[in-house]
Amino acid sequence: MKAFGKIEVYVGKIVQETKYIKRFHLYPVDRELLPAFTGGSHIATYVKNGAETIERNYSLVSHPTDRTQYAIAIRKDDHSRGGSVYWHDEIKVGDRLEISWPKNHFPLAFKAAKHHVFYAAGIGITPFMTMMEDLTAEGKSFELHYAARTKEDCAFYDYLMAKYPGKCHFYFSRTEIPKKMTPVTMAEHRIGSHVYFCGPASMVKEFREAAESYGYPSYAIHFELFAVADKGPKNPFVVKLTNSNKKVAVSEEETLLEALLKAGVQAPHSCKVGGCGSCEVQVMEGEVDHRDHFYKDGERGSKKVILTCCSRAKESEKELVLEL
């Protein structure tokens, strides 16, 4: 068992999983056992690049009870903020970095979950790798639907075929006979099924809306996104804090959470992409421009709250008053 806080690890092995996906195996520097975790967990990775620290969250793909090492799989994305490019181009075997303890904002459902159905697009397969391990160990029922461009681009294809025969459905879009993964299969899952989506924002949106239209109860619909949904320009605004008696200005360059932390306010947070709810703060006054994908639509109106990692004031001129 580790002391709490961050864990120091080194990269022990790098595997080229597909043309664009590498798997990194991380080992504890102090050779103590790492914490076991639950299916769907991720870690935050902190890589030093000169004076800058690149912080990124990646789902774990190693077995939840393997405490000797962790593995993560990263897809190189030239159009994102640069974390994946750095991992692919710069990280070598032997490099050291810090990681968080495994956290889980995408746990398996429990109550009345008779059958679990996973829909993965591309690198969205990663959280399902560990969920399927847990369900297998518990003898529970599940199936996987997994879309990639080709068999060669499909990470863990051979492993999944061998390990879960009859449970995996693959959809390859760039083959001679292209097959597209669509939400219609959800109409056929038996009553008591829970559905889980992971992939690009557009895919998750399409599947969520379809699941609702088929009559899935909201508690049976689960999803995880890797980035904040882009919802328009960032306006500058000011927040007033009632507990600490401070005023904090938020520029168009930063999030409310970043401004609060910079001002020395102990604002709670975790995922930083509007998905886990950890950074929720009560709003005493003012209108919020909600940009999270955490609350259900009805909740945004009835609860006076804001997720500081992504949401902002509706109007630049009117300050928000927060209980913080």
Binding site: F4, K6, W101, K103, P268, S270, G277, S278, K304, E323
Partner: peptide, 25 residues
């Protein structure tokens, strides 16, 4: 209820679930 009208037990329960994370007591 809290000052913003949210039932307190619910608010504390959600806070525990979302913020008491592994490695962060």
């Amino acid at each position: 209820v809290s000052r913003t009208g949210v039932p307190l037990a619910e608010r504390v329960r959600n806070f525990l679930i979302r913020n008491v994370l592994p490695g962060e007591p």
